[in-house]
Simulated assay, not measured.
Amino acid sequence: MLPPAHRLTDGASFREAVRTGRRSGTRTVVVHLATSPSGDGPPRVGFVVSKAVGNAVLRNRVKRRLRHLAREHVSSLPGSAVLVVRALPAAGSASAAELGADLARCLRRVQVQEVDA
């Protein structure tokens, strides 16, 4: 479980991260990483798991797995970063190991893009 300070809950932050952040995707997830110009506050993480992934039980399972996996990566995010992890339909049938590998790959890509920019 993510600590409350690291949870992304408001819709405006989700929209801004998706529209302005750097994006990377794999077969199971798409990651959007946006950095705040103000630079204050801890990094925050939000999840989008649509009905295309599966029924409510499956969506909640995917969300729990992604939350657990993202918790390991929060410390590597830049301060005041906003990370949105969007699960694709293939995430419903993926194992936790596959989700973890895809999430790590996407995070590496967006952080490298940020350094290059």
Rank of each mutant, 00 (worst) to 15 (best):
M1N: 03
L2N: 05
P3M: 11
P4R: 13
P4V: 10
A5P: 00
R7M: 01
R7F: 03
T9P: 00
T9G: 08
D10S: 02
G11N: 15
A12P: 02
A12T: 13
F14E: 08
R19H: 13
R23A: 15
S24I: 06
G25I: 11
R27I: 13
R27L: 13
V29G: 07
H32Y: 13
H32F: 03
A34Q: 14
T35W: 07
T35M: 14
P37I: 11
P37F: 12
S38E: 15
D40P: 00
D40S: 15
G41Q: 02
G41S: 01
P42Y: 01
P43H: 00
R44C: 12
R44L: 09
F47H: 03
V48P: 02
V48A: 12
V49Q: 05
V49W: 11
V49M: 05
S50Q: 04
K51Y: 00
K51D: 11
V53H: 09
V53E: 12
G54N: 03
N55G: 07
A56V: 01
A56Y: 08
V57M: 01
L58Y: 00
R59K: 04
N60H: 10
R61K: 10
V62L: 12
V62D: 10
R64M: 01
R65A: 08
R67N: 01
R67C: 07
H68I: 00
H68Q: 11
H68T: 14
R71S: 15
E72G: 05
H73Y: 09
S75K: 06
S76L: 13
S76N: 07
S80W: 05
A81R: 02
A81T: 03
L83I: 00
L83V: 04
V84F: 02
V85E: 09
V85Q: 04
A87K: 05
A90P: 07
A90M: 09
G92Q: 12
G92N: 10
S93L: 13
S93V: 14
A94K: 06
A94M: 12
A96H: 07
A96E: 08
E98K: 05
L99S: 00
G100H: 01
G100A: 10
D102T: 02
D102A: 10
D102I: 11
L103V: 03
L103W: 09
R105I: 00
L107V: 10
L107R: 04
R109Y: 08
D116R: 15
D116A: 15
A117R: 15
A117Q: 14
